[in-house]
Design a protein around this nucleic acid. Structure first.
Lengths: 257, 257
DNA sequence: TGACGCTATATACTCCGACAAATACATTGA
DNA sequence: TCAATGTATTTGTCGGAGTATATAGCGTCA
């Protein structure tokens, strides 16, 4: 029998890793929270009742709550109970939290925010990378781009190569906090492709932009790298915005599918 | 008796909140990990032995490990045990992880990285804020700056007002991911002051720069806001760099204190 | 000799039941 | 009216037992 979401009851794809109970509970609860199924300020049922309803031991449930609490989604105190915190306290940059957002149809405001963040971060990171990259960074970037070309963005391999390239740029920036943003940026990169693919759009060949960024970083030109990356991300933004617009108008049209 | 760090045995200031055991264990272990006391790849002692050595129950210890695991610091699997992950997988933007870094003398590379991040993020955020700020954002900013003036950066209140101002700018940017960076930026802001104070340096009055940023945001001028904020952060950066340089040369001088 | 499969074992994972501590809330008293 | 006190509810902590899983080592077979 396929594993099911213990909150919603819907079937859920397994993650590949051996599912530990506390992990799946944290996942299901996390998704339920960020998707608004539990509203901020709301108190969850008490441990004993809730763990019973979820058909897990109190220990496993408590460990799940610790995970959510560590990511800022809930806060528990004796007598008061465990309550959902205000969204501004959620740790949005946490890879898991971001993944939980994207487990359901994410808020368009979040997509926009991620692109804005990319437009801010990535050109600056590319400029730093142009100054500090080591040879092994260039090797990784080159290989990633070659894989992108070989597999195209229609394949899982190609998309993963795309993320690997952007990761490598952040890594080459030599800045620890920037490197920590790689999963956040990666989520943006991933969803660009998803939105475009959903609308069967492949409006521009992504490779020339990517190679220009690579060349600038390899040549050690910060300004060229910055503008090339701005061009790349900006192009992706425009494509995605167009796809999103179509998607929204399609939704308004009855029986579009 | 004052509470003591269960890893190092050193006395530790209590956090104000009622210390829950899992929390203090997570804190102590987290500090030990980010400070290099446990090296990446190293496996921790098994649950039974370690919890016994720490004088806590297995449940409490396990919940602490769940917290660390949620922040990417460790990874546990049956048979293999719980091992410290590679630093690039640590969730550096997590407020707790950052706090754990600063619990001991943090890596200068991290300080530099945070300032670089501020130089990238804050001017861009100020520009967005100039376009999107609501009136209540301006109210908060104005009050924060007035508190800064009243209390100065020598007081806890003044420093907290400083952070509140930068927070408000990020908030006014209307960008969810940017808002999540507030604790990260806040850590940078805090340590600017700390480093300067440590060297008894108050080389420039911070208020004019801050008011310039505020005026530009209030007037709705993105470009002016961007450059004013760049000036502000850049000035702080220069001050801190000078303080750091003195601090390092002082360390090399024998018996400087 | 090498590759493959089996088994033994160490470890985390899950469950249970009990008790302790904290705190919001009602009650009582001044 | 307000403060001290008590009480009930909820999370927090504990110890112990059994399960699941992944690694490593051994043995078997080609």
């Amino acid at each position: 029998m396929a594993p099911t979401d213990r909150i919603t009851g819907k079937p859920r794809r397994r993650t590949g890793n051996p599912a530990r109970i506390h992990g799946t509970i944290a996942h299901d609860l996390g998704v339920a929270i960020v998707s608004g199924q539990y509203t901020p300020g709301e108190v969850l049922p008490n441990e004993i009742d809730f763990s019973e309803r979820l058909k897990v031991s109190r220990s496993a449930y408590r460990e799940a709550v610790r995970i959510l609490s560590a990511k800022g989604l809930v806060e528990s105190r004796p007598k008061t109970g465990t309550r959902v915190t205000q969204p501004e306290r959620w740790n949005l940059l946490d890879p898991d939290v971001l993944a939980w957002y994207f487990a359901t149809e994410p808020d368009p405001k979040l997509i926009d925010g991620l692109f804005e963040l990319r437009m801010i971060i990535e050109p600056a990171a590319a400029a730093l990378a142009a100054e500090r990259r080591e040879s092994h960074h260039l090797t990784i970037m080159r290989e990633a781009l070659m894989n992108m070309e070989r597999h195209t963005l229609n394949t899982e391999e190609g998309q993963s190569a795309d993320r690997a390239f952007h990761d490598a740029v952040l890594d080459a920036s030599g800045n620890m906090p920037l490197r920590s943003l790689s999963s956040t940026i990666g989520a943006g990169v991933r969803w660009t492709t998803v939105y475009k693919a959903r609308k069967d759009e492949l409006p521009r060949d992504p490779m020339p932009d990517h190679w220009r960024v690579f060349d600038a970083i390899a040549a050690g030109g910060p300004d060229a790298a910055r503008s090339a990356m701005a061009e790349l991300v900006g192009g992706a933004l425009r494509d995605t915005a167009r796809a999103l617009r179509r998607s929204q108008t399609a939704e308004k049209t009855p029986d579009a599918g």
